[in-house]
Amino acid sequence: MAEQESKVAQLLKKHEQDVLQKWLSYQMSSMTWRADLMKESDLREQSREFLQLFIEVSQQSGPGADAAAWKSAKEMLAEVSRSRAMQGFSPSETAMFVFSLKQPLFDTLRRELNDVEELSREVWSTTTLLDKLGLYTVEAYQQSRESVIARQQQELLELSTPVVQLWDHIVALPLIGTLDSARTQVVMERLLEKVVQTGASIAIIDITGVPTVDTLVAQHLLKTVAAARLMGADCIISGIRPQIAQTIVHLGVNLADVITKATLADAFAVALQRTGARVTRVGVKE
């Protein structure tokens, strides 16, 4: 087996430049080549590097594949997938990088090997090897995409919960998007920290941007209100839309202990009154 495997390697070594040229032209003429995303010189460099690693792998592989050669090939492919995922390639476009090597490779094999038996054996083993590497590429691509998604989720979590100070001793928390447990935790912490920081005595939680309120969301809201109260700040929930008011009552959620207002303006008026401030018109004759 080891001897047969090295046949491919031998042929590849002999025809390396030729295979590389054909592979490159094939890659660039194919439908999956994205000239808008990647420079030709980069592709040439990647292809050359991969071909060399592939020769190494096929030289030493067999059922007990050599770990070191595999490892460097895999690392290289992971790097390629990562960079392509960032550049915006699709999964199949990324995988084609590996799979497109088949055509020039098989052409060479067909030209050089005359025995049908031997040819089919070589083609089969090379195909298996390339498929494995191709699948690994897709896997690495997906992993890097998933890490991007995870990072974006984290960023979204941080972006979506600003606590703003409206006045002395009054802070507001405009909530946007659906509230789940993880977000509630972040929201609660942010609000309480801001209360400590500003010495606020009133916190307005505005839920205009919350699309739906179910029992879970209501429970999360009530928790936040209770925690703020424990720290000595009163909470007002504002921005309750008509449909949400109906939902809350139908669900039997008890918001009796909490001050609720229809709009942020109403809530702000109450907050000003509580803190002893008053808004008056000055010098404007109507």
Binding site: E189, L192, V195, V196, A227, A228, L230, G232
Partner: peptide, 12 residues
């Protein structure tokens, strides 16, 4: 007086 945020969250 002066309950910390973490303590408040825990109690809730």
């Amino acid at each position: 007086v002066g309950m910390r945020p973490a303590v408040a969250i825990t109690l809730v």
